[in-house]
Each structure stands twice: as structure tokens, then as C-alpha cells.
Design a protein around this nucleic acid. Structure first.
Lengths: 124, 124
DNA sequence: CATTGATTTCTACGTCATGTAAAATATGGA
DNA sequence: TCCATATTTTACATGACGTAGAAATCAATG
């Protein structure tokens, strides 16, 4: 059950999907990448490249594809926050000394985030 | 400044080093791996293989090597907890919506760990 | 229904990280 | 000096990813 990791481009594509409320077409993504919307340095890629990446992301269950519309529509299957949180849990889960890790982790959280954490814990 | 990631074998080697109080020789590690001490499924590797991996880990600054003794002595340059915590921060840092991620993260922490977290936050 | 332009799928290749280890070299004693 | 042991070099296979051309498919339209 371990989370597949993402490459640079794959990550950029996910960022575009995550940052967009609606589903996007391969073309939309291609343009977003060209425009440099996501961190991915304004690369000018072929649409087939984007489609290949999208297929791989689909295989990894990171995106879902709507095949009923003509330019297929793609959307992230998980929110970025959920994904990131899961990644963090995965790291934590790989350690035998979980509490020690948590301690270190908390030790380096910024003050404002410490406050946020307190609130979160209280509201549980 | 991004943390290099570790492969399967590299990770097993680090686990052995992390689990050992003292520094180890390549032979020690080879044996530990053969014995199946670390998660690494009891692989029977050549010592040169282990040395190659150790060199790579050294390049990645995960281990330090003592060249003054004959069989060189290797030891982890960071504790596992510190490494894991750093990884977690790296994931968190890659998200624009840090608090959202933290919220999700906390949402899935076990009760006992929630308590631990509270204590940690209090003692700050 | 045949044609064509758009879209998707297949196929392919380069590169890089990693696992793996033999060959070559260095080193420290006998 | 010579040997046994340890380290460094060199090498190759594999798999993930970036990248995209070629081939196949599909939807509209004449």
C-alpha cells in the first residue's frame, strides 16, 4: 500500500489539476505548463507528452479520466492536502520510533503553525 | 536543498546503521543484511555491493566514513528520527496550503499520538 | 457513407538512479 | 617483497520518467 512517487513533470501536472476547480483537458494542461502556471518551468511540450503523463498518473490512481466527452476531461482523484498528508503519514509509518519523529517534527514547526496545531488538536 | 531519496537497499543499510549504536564495517552490514536484521529481506550480497552503496550514501551525506581504521568504519550522519522529521517537513514545505495539510495530517493521527502531540506542544 | 481534422493510444528512445558485482588497485603485515 | 584483505573502478541490467512521432480512432460534414 505504498504511495507511488511522482516525477517532476507528473508533479507539475498534478499541481495544475489541483489548482483548478474544474476538470481539464490535455490541451488545457499543455497550455498551463507552457504558460508556466505550475512550478514546472514554462515547458513547451507536445500534447501527446501530456497525455502520456496523464495516462501514467491515471495508472497510479492520481487522476480520473472522463472518456465521455471528446477531449477527455481529467481531474485529480485526491486533493493535494490529502495527498501530502498521506505522504507524511507514510514517512512516519516507516519509522519504528514514531514518537521521536513526531517530536522532532513538531520541534521545527513555526510558531504560528504550532498555534494552528493546538487549535486542530482541541477541535478533535 | 532537497533531501535525496533512498532506494530499497540504501534504506536497509541506513536502518542497520541507525539501529546500531556503534559504527559498522561493510562486512558487518553485509552480514546484517544476510541475516535479515533490517527490513531488507535477507539478501546475500557481495561486500563490494555494500561498499558501493555505502559510497553512494556517503556522497549523499547520509553516512560518514572513518578511513583511519583498516576495515573502514561507517556511521549514520543523522539520526533516523531527524531524517524522517526532515522528510516530513520537506513534504509539508512542498505544499502551498500547509495548514490544510497539517489539518489532514493531524486528523489521521492515532489518539495516543494525539496525546503525545499535545504534550509536545505544551512543552514548548 | 467516405473524408478529414482532432484526439487518443501505441510504440519508442534517451537518461538517470539504483542494485549488483567482477576486475583492478591499494595497504598493512609476515 | 608477497600475500591476504579491503577499497576503488568500472560495468551492466533494470525500471521510472520525460519526451514525442506514428498509428489508430472518432466525430462531424459534405
Amino acid at each position: 500500500m505504498d504511495m507511488a512517487t511522482l516525477g517532476e513533470l507528473e508533479r507539475s501536472v498534478m499541481d495544475l489539476l489541483w489548482d483548478s476547480a474544474e476538470a481539464l483537458t490535455a490541451g488545457d494542461i499543455r497550455d498551463g505548463l507552457a504558460r508556466g502556471d505550475a512550478a514546472g518551468t514554462g515547458k513547451d511540450l507536445a500534447v501527446t507528452t501530456v497525455l502520456t503523463v496523464l495516462s501514467r498518473l491515471e495508472a497510479k490512481n492520481f487522476v480520473t479520466r472522463d472518456r465521455d466527452t471528446r477531449p477527455h476531461l481529467f481531474h485529480a482523484s485526491t486533493s493535494r492536502a490529502a495527498h501530502m498528508a498521506e505522504l507524511m503519514h507514510e514517512v512516519l509509518g516507516a519509522a519504528p520510533d514514531r514518537e521521536a519523529v513526531l517530536a522532532r517534527f513538531v520541534g521545527q514547526v513555526s510558531p504560528s503553525e504550532v498555534a494552528a496545531l493546538r487549535r486542530m488538536l482541541d477541535g478533535k
